[in-house]
Amino acid sequence: MSYAIIGFGHIGQALARAFARKGIDVSVATTRDPESFAADAAAIGPTIIAKTLADALKADIIFLAVRFASHPDVANALPSWQGKTIVDVTNAYGVPPEELAKQPSSKFIAQAFSGARLVKGFNHLIAATLDQDPAVHGGRRVVFLASDDDAAAAEIAALADNLGFSPIKLGGLSEGGLLVQARGNSWGQLIFKDLVKFD
């Protein structure tokens, strides 16, 4: 299984550090030339590989960690997303629901990435919290996942577990997914909740 993070701002770098902590290879890319951020990627760890967007999108599992408004630029980079799993880490705060045809933002994004399996996840924590080691006081930091594809949710839950987090599945995008999505100028009820699970 191969992994990529698209977007290398605070959230993208926090995700990259999670992979680096476990020594898991992950490609990182933006719409910029990879040489412009290769040094920052290398500073995180040897398993973080700066690539062009086209090369990074060859991965099986792709974390979409760009600004919500930038998602069409990524979606248009491939003619088909068949066989890919997208982890939607975006937050559509401030986007009027009318612009999303009154759908949850992840459903709107799923339409742009036609053919992909989409999981909403890793978006409810601020970058500074996501950046920390998920092992906390003998427990593990929770990440919430929502998807209309149970197999995709299970796949990302297993990855989250490998990265040291405690995944909690919330159900479909239109049900539990609303708990971790911005809607207009309001946040879902679980956004910014930093929870730790003890087994």
Rank of each mutant, 00 (worst) to 15 (best):
D33Q: 08
F19N: 08
S27K: 11
F63I: 06
G9Q: 06
Q13S: 14
E155V: 00
N162T: 15
T47Y: 06
P34Q: 10
V87G: 03
F63Q: 01
G177Q: 09
V196N: 05
P104T: 08
T85K: 01
I6D: 00
Q132S: 06
S2G: 08
R117H: 08
D150A: 15
K169V: 07
D33W: 09
D40T: 13
E35N: 12
K193S: 14
A128I: 04
L130M: 14
A39Y: 09
D199A: 13
Q103A: 15
R67P: 09
V180I: 15
A101S: 15
L163I: 12
S186A: 15
L178W: 03
R17W: 04
L118G: 04
E99H: 14
L130W: 04
A146P: 06
F192H: 15
A157R: 11
G188S: 07
I126E: 09
F198G: 07
Q103S: 12
L118F: 04
A116L: 04
F108Y: 15
T31N: 11
G184C: 11
V87Y: 05
L100K: 06
H124L: 02
A146N: 09
L64T: 06
A112Q: 15
I191G: 01
K193C: 05
F8S: 00
I6H: 02
R17E: 10
V136Y: 02
E99P: 00
V74L: 07
Y3S: 01
A18G: 14
K58S: 11
T90L: 01
I5A: 04
D133H: 08
I168N: 04
G23V: 11
D194Q: 13
L179H: 13
G171V: 03
P167L: 02
G176A: 10
A59D: 02
T31L: 13
T90K: 04
D131A: 11
A135C: 08
P79Q: 12
S106H: 09
A128W: 02
T30H: 01
A151N: 12
A157Q: 10
N185L: 12
A154V: 05
I5H: 05
K193N: 14
T47E: 10
G139T: 05
A110L: 13
I49P: 04
L179E: 15
F122N: 04
N123Q: 11
K107E: 15
F68C: 08
I24F: 13
S114Q: 15
A160I: 06
L170Q: 02
A152M: 02
K84E: 03
G121N: 10
